[in-house]
Simulated scan of single mutants.
Amino acid sequence: MEFRHLVSFLAIADELHFGRAAARLHLTQPSLSQQLQRLERTLGVELVARTSHDVRLTSAGRAFEVEARAIVARVEKAAQSAREAAAGRTGTVSVGYNFPAGRHILPATLTRMHAEHPGVTVKLAERRTGPQLAALADGTLDVALVYGRPVTGGFRYRRLLRLPMVAVVGAGHEWAGLPGVPFAELARQSCILFDRDQCPAMYDAILAAAERTGIRLTVAQVVDDPAGTGILVSVTPLVGFASASRGMFAGSVPGGVRPVRLFDPVPAIDLYAVWRDAHTTPLQEAFLDCLETAGPFRVPAP
């Protein structure tokens, strides 16, 4: 059974006239009759009865018409879905993000995506930079919103905004309540840091600021979970590090950690959109276009 035979049969069912059905399909009447005959031979039943005066569907033809219309409609819908997906108008795009991207980048970008591409689903995953880039490399993510631009090949990137970093301490720490401290004061504190491969750009920014001030950080603990860092500094005299966005959010929670501005120098990190260099899909391009037009992005003043 061929799809074109179903289309021809439905044209006959609509018109109940071979001449009009053939004209509608841009076929000759003999060609249309041959297609109907092949369909009837395949099914083993007569679908259309015709005389010199009229054309009508048989009982088998009327039953077959219902299912044939459903089949043709589903094929047409499948074709439309394929065209929509190829054009980036339907489907799913997987996006990784970190805390500042969730607060300053995604709201405006997703609003634009919903307005311009309502058929596209954006699947979100919050992760640190290292895991995001690994997922991007293996194809699990389509776009990553991360700290720092990748240093390995195979990626393209776009800078979105610059974020200052702050120290975070517990309510009982001697720095709690201070508007800010010089970075060199960290020489007299014990710190919480994290493995570099979790977030290379933030790690390097902290150590670069320490090198500029001529101090060596005393790392008392290594914790790779930002929430875990917040818990530890709230119950110990240790100093942790966070983006200004996360620090401001944590400081707004009663009884939570206290962000402390660092200066001279102010450590800062850049937030980037990163995607694979090859095989960019229309869905990725749609998200990246919305990301571009939703900007420029800014971090609110504390």
Rank of each mutant, 00 (worst) to 15 (best):
E65D: 06
T28E: 12
E174C: 09
R20S: 00
R128P: 07
L145T: 14
F64Y: 13
I206C: 01
S8A: 09
L133T: 00
T281H: 05
D195I: 10
G255P: 12
H117G: 09
R298Q: 13
T280L: 08
R56L: 06
T28K: 14
S33M: 08
L163V: 14
D277L: 03
D138L: 08
V233K: 00
D54G: 01
A176G: 00
A167Q: 09
T213G: 00
T109W: 14
L133W: 01
A201N: 07
V274Q: 05
L291I: 06
Y203P: 01
R298K: 13
E15L: 02
R156V: 13
L232M: 04
M113Q: 15
P267H: 04
A273N: 12
P254K: 12
F99D: 06
L16Q: 00
K123Q: 15
T218M: 14
R261P: 00
S81A: 14
A244E: 11
R156F: 00
L160I: 08
T121E: 11
S31M: 10
E2H: 07
L145A: 13
G170D: 02
S33L: 10
L106V: 13
D195R: 15
A134T: 11
V235T: 08
S8H: 05
F297Y: 14
A101D: 09
D224P: 01
C290S: 09
T58S: 04
R158N: 12
G91E: 03
A22M: 04
P179H: 03
F297L: 08
S243K: 07
L10D: 05
V253R: 07
A125H: 12
P118R: 10
S234N: 07
R188A: 14
A268I: 03
R196D: 02
P179G: 01
F297H: 13
G130F: 13
D225S: 12
V143N: 12
P296A: 05
A82G: 13
A101T: 11
P118N: 10
T111A: 15
F249V: 06
Q198A: 11
G255D: 12
H114R: 15
V45H: 03
L6K: 02
P30W: 01
V222Y: 06
T129E: 13
L238C: 06
V95P: 08
L133F: 05
